[in-house]
């Protein structure tokens, strides 16, 4: 007994097996015990969710053979028994597990003084900030050749960040790079035709890419999907002394939202990947101008 029974972490496969062994999603017995513990906390029967899969154990070699379904676990809020697809909060709505909030219910009103101070204790409309007030255009000024756009970087049609997009197939099925979508009338105003090269810039950074001109995009908006790698088809920027241009995030900056930093109160409690300040780095304002010929 004793030391001999400690799991080995000698190689990567062992380490993976240890994780799989300790996680309720991949070890039915652990899931069962976790639900037993949850029952004690919640005062409702829950372990039946793990009863029938109590004997399930996934090892690394199982996963090599084929994809496996995760088991239902109290660490998450979905119920995925019997092939059911994952949806959040099933445990809360169907099995009445209290929500992970101060009151155990869903919160609409947030009675935290930080939220009250910011006027966000109820869902609130906040207008777009003034582009000049946020300091993107201290040095960069609009001129006759450029147009100012509200720059948005939403998830792409095919990709989750760089995954599934920065590959030969999907780049071929789109435009071979990460274009800036803009409205046709806006494009015309600065003499840009579909697929022309453009320089997209503000004080913070610069992107050089091609314009995807479409009536689908509302006027005044420029869209560049995030978050692709800066490795494919990125020319140099004349505006920056012919240095390599940036990626979609080069013109945005991280602005921490103060209310997301309040804590120590009910659900506002920091936990890794659970609650913490998000970088509000997705949207800003940019100037766009035509670029004759890209320099590589």
């Amino acid at each position: 007994m004793g030391r001999r029974d400690l799991p080995s972490l000698a190689d990567a496969v062992d380490a993976a097996d240890v994780i799989l062994h300790l996680a309720p999603e991949t070890n039915g017995e652990v899931a069962y015990r976790a639900f037993k513990a949850e029952e004690a906390k919640v005062g409702l029967p829950l372990a039946d969710l793990a009863e029938r899969t109590r004997g399930t154990r996934y090892t690394y070699s199982d996963l090599l053979q084929q994809p496996r379904r995760l088991l239902t676990s109290p660490c998450w809020s979905g119920i995925v028994n019997d092939g059911r697809a994952y949806a959040a909060y099933c445990l809360n709505t169907e099995r009445l597990v209290p929500w992970r909030t101060l009151t155990g219910r869903q919160h609409f009103y947030l009675d935290h003084e930080g939220y009250i101070a910011f006027g966000e204790h109820l869902p609130t409309f906040k207008p777009k900030p003034d582009p000049y007030a946020i300091g993107e255009f201290v040095k960069s000024r609009a001129d006759g050749d450029s147009i100012m756009l509200n720059y948005l970087t939403p998830h792409g049609k095919w990709n989750i960040h760089s995954t599934y997009y920065d590959n030969h197939r999907m780049l071929t099925l789109s435009r071979g790079l990460h274009p800036l979508w803009m409205n046709d009338a806006d494009a015309e105003q600065i003499g840009v035709k579909d697929n022309d090269w453009v320089e997209v810039y503000n004080d913070h950074g610069v992107v050089v890419t091609r314009a995807n001109v479409s009536a689908r995009v509302p006027r005044g908006i420029g869209i560049l999907y995030h978050a692709t790698e800066r490795t494919i088809s990125v020319p140099r920027s004349p505006l920056r002394g012919n240095r390599r241009a940036g990626g979609h995030n080069s013109v945005t900056r991280t602005r921490l939202k103060p209310v997301l930093m309040v804590g120590g109160y009910g659900q506002f409690t920091y936990a890794f990947n659970y609650w913490g300040p998000t970088g509000v780095n997705r949207d800003t304002y940019v100037l766009v101008r035509r670029l004759d010929k890209p320099d590589w």
Partner: peptide, 22 residues
């Protein structure tokens, strides 16, 4: 050789370049 990509098998996806294609 280096190319200027001017067309692709799904070039007008989701109304890309609608003033020319759509």
């Amino acid at each position: 050789e280096p190319v200027d990509i001017e067309a692709g098998p799904n070039w007008d996806d989701d109304l890309s370049g609608s003033p020319i294609y759509a």
